[in-house]
Structures are given as structure tokens and as C-alpha cells.
Simulated assay, not measured.
Amino acid sequence: MSDADRLVVVSDDPRYDPERLRESLGCRVEPADLSTPEALRTNAADADAVVVNVGSTVPRSVIEELDLTVVARGAVGLDGINVSAAAEHGVQVIHVPDYCLEEVADHAVGLFTALARGIPAYADRAAAGDWDWQPPYPIGRLADCTVGVVSFGPIARRFADRVLPLVDDVLVADPYVDDAVIREHDAEPVGFDALCRRADHLSVHAPLTEETRGMVDEDAFDALPPHAVVVNTGRGGVVDEEALATALADGSVAAAGLDVLAAEPPAADHSLFGRDDVLVTPHAGWYSAAAERDLNDAIAGDLARAFRGEEPRGLVDPDADWL
């Protein structure tokens, strides 16, 4: 098949640049709604490859029905994509694991430090004419605190490197990373339960898998101290959001900063909205102009490699432990 005959259907998510993909690949590139399995079946019926968004679900049934060679996602996480079914049907799954490492690490540090100092609540007070320094929730000294990091991939390692000069100690829970690697970042490897018992604050960077779904739950919040800030820039489903809302309401933890939620976009009446102890951003941690450019270049490059019969740099191993 010639390049001109191929069809790539790309999600109408604004992070993707169809014109850039078209110029790079020399084939037909059509934007379309790919947000649901039904939309995939309808809008990618003739596609050779699809580029789906973060929230798209690509189940076994879609992989079996469509005649795809590649499923690509412009993100690190693969939740919702049936990678094993794709492998069974000869469909390559591609992700982009390294385009926004600096940005997400910076975002996590920003959420953590802002909330640990009570800045969003103080700013809201001042804007409302309430000139009051009294803390909105328990606030400790950053230099005296211990930060617990859940999962220790490339983003979490950058977060740890950034936050360590600000705090007393960093603990890491990740059973898939060698202790020696964790210690190379001047952090202490511990189990998840011990991390929750010993940490003052928690930063979650885990991918969403059956093992991690809901792992930051009521028990975890009960183990944390009442001044704890909980940050999640990994995947929304890793944190039990209802348990978090309850923990905030009863004072088990102090504040939460979330760039990811279990359902995106969330309902307007989500239980974590409208609180001065919660800071929610719209899955924007990945963004910078440079990251957006790198994302589209990486997808275009890997699609081109796949079409040439070469191994894409972001090819997903269906047997990887973290899936």
C-alpha cells in the first residue's frame, strides 16, 4: 500500500495537529470524534490507523471489528485500550511516554507547594475582602515534612528531584522499580502502607491498572496525618474520589490537588468541586507549547515507522509488568 492510500483517523482533540500529521506522513489524515467505541466503529471504519485521545476506550470488540494496523495515543497511560487484544490481532499500540515529563513534574510540584502553603484558599479570601492570615486547614513547614511518592516512573523521578530540596525526606512506593534506582534519587524505598503511615504528604504518579485502581482509598487517607496534601497527576481512577471527599470533610487530610479525575470531563456537581481545600486542573499538566509540538512529532514519527515496517519508538509491550 502506498502512503497516499493510507488513512489515519485522528481524534478531534485539540492537542492533535492533523495538518502536521498529514505533512509528515504523506497520507490521508481525517479528524473525527473517536471518544467512544461507537464513534470509533463509525468514524474509523476504513482507517489503517487511529490516534485516540486520553479518555477514549478501545475494547476488544472494536479491535476485532476494525481492520487497523496501529492504535496510537498521545499520552503515557494506556487505560481503556485493550493492549492484549491488539497484540492477538497484530495491531501495534503506540504511546508517547516522554513528551511531557518536565511539564507534569512541574505541575505536581506546583499543586503540592501551593496547597501545602494554603495559597489558593488565601488568594480567594483576599479577593473576597477577607484579609485573614488564619490557616484554612492545618499548614506545616515544608522543610520539616516527608513526601510520599506513589509509583516511580520518569515523571515521578523528576518530581522527587524537584521537591527534595524543599522538604526533609522523600519516600517512594513502587514494587516494579529496584530499590537501588530509588536510592539514586536520594529517596527511601518503602511499601505503600508504610508510605501512608510515615508521609506528611502524598504525590500519586501511578498508571491506572487493575492493581492500582482505587489503591489510594479510605485506609490510605486514615493513615495519613490531618495536615496531609494529596496530589494526583497520574490517573484519576487510582484515587478513590468519594473516599477523598469524605477524608477532606472529616479532616482526615487537609487538601488535595488533582489534575486527573476518574471521569473526564467530570460532572458539574462533582463532590470535589466548590471546596477551598481542593485545587482541580483540567488534565492540563502535560501542556506547554514545546510539549504539544513534541507530542505531534512523536506520533507522526512512530506512525511513519510502523507504516515502513520498522519498530516504533513508543511501541507498547503487551507483556509489560505495569499494564
Rank of each mutant, 00 (worst) to 15 (best):
R15P: 02
E211Y: 12
D169E: 15
S56N: 09
Y16D: 01
E241G: 08
P165I: 04
D130N: 06
H95G: 01
L323Q: 12
V9K: 01
R28H: 07
L171E: 01
W131L: 14
D17Y: 03
F307S: 01
D250M: 11
A284F: 12
T69C: 09
R162Y: 04
A199M: 08
I94Q: 00
D13C: 09
D186Q: 10
G140E: 14
L68G: 03
V190F: 10
P207C: 13
A121H: 03
A194S: 14
A121L: 11
V51I: 11
F273Y: 13
F221W: 14
V58N: 00
A249V: 07
V170F: 02
V181I: 15
D186M: 04
H107S: 07
G314N: 05
A247M: 06
V163S: 10
I299V: 09
Y16N: 00
D200A: 09
L208F: 08
F273T: 04
A143I: 10
S11M: 02
E19A: 13
A306Q: 01
R157E: 15
L272W: 03
C27Y: 03
D144Q: 15
L279D: 11
D277T: 14
L244P: 07
R22H: 06
L142G: 04
D319A: 15
L258T: 12
V239Y: 09
A306K: 00
A256K: 07
V96K: 02
A127G: 02
V172C: 10
P31D: 06
H95M: 08
D302P: 00
V9A: 03
D179C: 11
G251Y: 07
H107T: 08
V253E: 13
G153V: 12
T57W: 13
A75K: 04
A114Y: 06
D67M: 10
A268M: 07
A263R: 14
H205V: 11
P318N: 03
D161E: 11
N43L: 10
L295K: 06
V190D: 13
G251M: 09
S288K: 13
L115F: 14
D269P: 13
V260I: 10
A300E: 00
V51C: 06
N82K: 05
D294F: 06
L202A: 12
S35C: 09
V29H: 05
R157N: 05
R183A: 13
A206W: 01
T69N: 07
W133E: 11
R6M: 03
R117F: 04
D169Y: 05
A267Y: 05
V278W: 09
L101R: 13
H205Q: 13
L34K: 02
G236D: 05
Y99H: 12
I94G: 00
R308F: 00
D169K: 14
D132W: 02
A223S: 15
M215G: 10
A173E: 02
W131E: 10
A187Y: 07
H270W: 05
R117I: 03
